[in-house]
Each structure stands twice: as C-alpha cells, then as structure tokens.
C-alpha cells in the first residue's frame, strides 16, 4: 500500500497547472492497481469564461477532463517504478488509445472524484488499464480499456515544429 501526495505525484507525472488533474493517490499496489482522488472546484480555469446566466448543466465538469484525470491516475501507476517527469528525454509514457469510456453521471464543482485503476494486461512496453470513477458511491465514469506505451521521447520531439530533420 502506498499513499502519494501531490509533491510526489509531480515527481512522476510531467503535467502541471492547469493540466495536472490528480490530487492524491490513496492506495497503490505497484504493477497492479491504484486509487486516486481529484477534487473538482469552480476555481478551475475551465469555469472562468462561463456566463453568469449559464444554466446548471454548464457547470458539469468537462467530460474529456474526467477521462484525462482518470488516465493521469493510470499514468502514475504506469510510471511509478520508472518515473520520468521530463518529456524531453528518456522514455515517456504515450497515450495510445481508449475504448469504451462511458459517462454515467455528471460531475459538478464540490465533487471529489475517486478514480479506481487496474492494470489489466501488459506486454513489452505496452500497458492496458481499466476501471471506473466514483463520486461518493455513484459510478460516474466507466473505462473499459486505455492503452499506454513507453516510447523514446524523440518520437514526440522529432515531430515538433523546428525540430524536424
């Protein structure tokens, strides 16, 4: 069992404000599973441009960020034994694809997401995760399959503007 606070999460993930979407890891069995928390607040920048007359639905947390937050939790599990918070060198974790991410219930400011991630399979440098996210006892997100792969950083930097040969 391992608990991680955000200072330790930042030594594992390269994401930073406003895209670091994991607040705490409450339980981890390396190579197996993890539970992480993300608190949603109306002070996140996504809410900044909302019109004062916007309806209740407008405050539902962006669906794609729920998926991102879950995937970052999976990223902590993936990179725990070999952390590299620098995206410019060494091996980096690339998000290969997702299948069947279902949104079951809206998430609102004030909610605390509990992401449950299980490593379902791994072969070579490729890892496959599944799991769900809860608010209280309600399942809000179900993730059937997320694929991540460790790849040389040059696969990313080689495609950057001004760095192509």
């Amino acid at each position: 069992m391992t608990e991680l606070t955000v200072d330790e999460i930042k030594r594992i993930l390269p994401h930073r404000f406003p895209m670091l979407l994991v607040d705490r890891v409450t339980e981890m069995v390396p190579g197996e599973r993890l539970t992480a928390l993300k608190a949603v607040t109306v002070n996140e920048p996504w809410y900044q441009e909302l019109d004062d007359k916007a309806p209740e639905e407008a405050y539902h947390y962006p669906s794609v960020l729920l998926a991102e937050s879950w995937c970052q939790s999976a990223g902590v599990l993936a990179a725990w034994e070999n952390p590299n918070p620098d995206v410019l060198s060494g091996q980096v974790m690339l998000f290969g694809g997702v299948s069947d991410v279902e949104y079951l219930h809206p998430v609102r400011p004030g909610d605390v997401l509990e992401h449950r991630v299980t490593l379902s399979r791994s072969f070579g440098d490729t890892l496959i995760f599944e799991g769900e996210s809860l608010v209280g006892e309600q399942v809000v997100l179900r993730v059937s399959r997320v694929t991540m792969a460790m790849r040389p950083a040059s696969e990313l930097t080689g495609g950057a503007p001004g760095e192509q040969s």
């Binding site: 390269p14 406003p18 670091l20 995206v87 410019l88 990313l156």
Partner: peptide, 15 residues
Amino acid sequence: VFAGHYPGFPIFPGV
C-alpha cells in the same frame, strides 16, 4: 492547456 502540457514543450493534449 499548453502552460501545463508540458512546461517547455507544448503538445496539445489528446483529450
């Protein structure tokens, strides 16, 4: 999003 994804190396997040 570029400020934090990633500092010094902006890549548009897949999501």
